[in-house]
Nucleic acid binder design. Sequence first.
DNA 1: TCCGACCTTGACGCCGGTGTCAAGGTCAAG
DNA 2: CTTGACCTTGACACCGGCGTCAAGGTCGGA
Lengths: 123, 123
Amino acid sequence: MQIGELAAKTGTTPRALRHYEQAGLITSERAANGYRVYDTGAAVRVRNIRHLLDAGLTLDDVRVFLPCLDGDVTAGPASATALRVAAERLAVMDARIAAQVAVRDRLATVLSQATGTHMRPVA
Amino acid sequence: MQIGELAAKTGTTPRALRHYEQAGLITSERAANGYRVYDTGAAVRVRNIRHLLDAGLTLDDVRVFLPCLDGDVTAGPASATALRVAAERLAVMDARIAAQVAVRDRLATVLSQATGTHMRPVA
DNA sequence: TCCGACCTTGACGCCGGTGTCAAGGTCAAG
DNA sequence: CTTGACCTTGACACCGGCGTCAAGGTCGGA
């Protein structure tokens, strides 16, 4: 499998895949002509990477999870470091969300007082 | 009060304050020598701006809230236009918050699968 | 043989908020 | 007068995750 096909399979782009490789998240064999060649397992790995990135982790964060990323995301005894990183990110996100909800609620309060309309709280 | 003092009072930097001014978030008088001069209310205003930024809003977002930001964050005179704008922003914020909550929950899921520990949902 | 679709590396662009350096003006204290 | 701490504007640097263009090599099919 070469890079374009892997990109299509995983819903990313060749550019992103090269970027992941350069960041040390994936590896590739090289054909005689210099083209990258991936084995079938690469698709799972890339999808896992995407899940973590979509979950708000950085590439550096994801690298920490690599040891337990070769199977499915659901598998693998996560390393202590990996868990710590994830927990930290989670805490940051919770704090940020809470702050935004607070702002949102203040704004909703002002609006409801001014308009008399009830604004439903955040989901 | 000049810029260094305001920065110290609000826990920011002169650079940031100039940036806020250039973004139209704060204003300043000028002394004869060209130095920026702030009145005492500026500190409250800047702290409110910081709160909103820390909540993940952008400078553009913050600008929208300026009309009801001159007193405390909790106060709001709210002109008709301001209300309409505020309602729009509220929808945007709700969408943004929902997206972040979704991301957060994905991360929490990954984490809980890895640890076997149940993480409580976002407040 | 030649086109077009694929691949390669390298490098610059973007967004947002700020750090930081440059090259000065201003002012109070010694 | 000099020093040094403050201020001014302007502009480039940075992070992260790519997009995108450049300039080329490598295929397979008509």
